[in-house]
Design a protein around this nucleic acid. Structure first.
Lengths: 144, 144
DNA sequence: GGTCATTATCTGTATATGCAGGTAAATGAA
DNA sequence: TTCATTTACCTGCATATACAGATAATGACC
């Protein structure tokens, strides 16, 4: 006697469902990262810079699917905290290359176990198999 | 020779993946709803008030998994535009009941076909079957 | 070499989001 | 009844997010 899932009801709005789930999940990571003073978003940004190396706004924007103007400001916050800094200049003077600072790397190392704990918990919720499928589905949206 | 999916790499962070997908999807709906002057978030809020009837902040917060303080402000914006308004008083004077205004309902009706078009496009991307599965998976997070 | 379109980023403005902490009403216990 | 606790909501503060439009540097074409 469950209500049938009606995909064309605003309740089933893909945007709503994704955002709602994202809000809940983000809160979990935020809580876990709180001891090291990072938000989940900042952890991701730091991870990108550390794992992929110094990058410019455009590259980050592409990789994270985040508007460049958003990144400018998110990086500003992190810059004030000394987590990231501008890297060497580029031939093209329009381009700004950003990298994780030493302190940024240290904070990231501190954050990693907290993140891993939470990530593992999330994998347990889904089951690793299903998360892999879910990730694939989400990727569909991004390629299109 | 594809890189194997490593669920414990920060690149696979559940929060990051969900948020990234949500950003992309939200932009699509925002673009579609622009002609009627609604953001996807506002459409959802309006839909909740119209389909479920007048509600207080607490009920909305529960249904949308959005912090009450966020709702207070989001509703403020919509109230200024005359889309929502306070409903009759409650016995409990702490409680504030909100409802869609006449104009809110009119705007919602205008928005609906635009939303439907976009929703259908998203269903096509996933395939209806898969979206149903995806929605189920997302719900896992919310129940826990 | 000068002009014009393109590209990379930033600013102004507005919404979305949530935590801490505050206030007022309701509730429950003594 | 009185007072402490709980509940429902709001304010202050900070971050996240993106569109429009501005700016500055490149690149292409004559």
């Amino acid at each position: 006697m469950t209500t049938p899932f009606d995909p064309m009801s605003p309740t089933s709005c893909v945007s709503f469902r994704l955002r709602r789930a994202a809000r809940i999940v983000a809160k979990t990571y935020d809580a876990a990262l709180k001891p090291v003073g990072l938000r989940n978003t900042q952890f991701t940004l730091l991870a990108a810079l550390i794992m992929e190396g110094p990058q410019n706004i455009g590259q980050l924007s592409e990789a994270l699917a985040t508007d460049g103007t958003t990144l400018t400001r998110n990086l500003q916050v992190m810059s004030k905290r000394g987590l990231v800094e501008d890297a060497s200049f580029h031939e093209d003077e329009r381009v700004r290359i950003v990298k994780a600072s030493q302190q940024g790397e240290a904070v990231f190392r501190q954050a990693l176990p907290h993140w891993q704990m939470t990530q593992q918990k999330m994998l347990d919720v889904f089951g690793q198999e299903r998360w892999s499928e879910l990730a694939d589905l989400l990727q569909l949206v991004e390629s299109k």
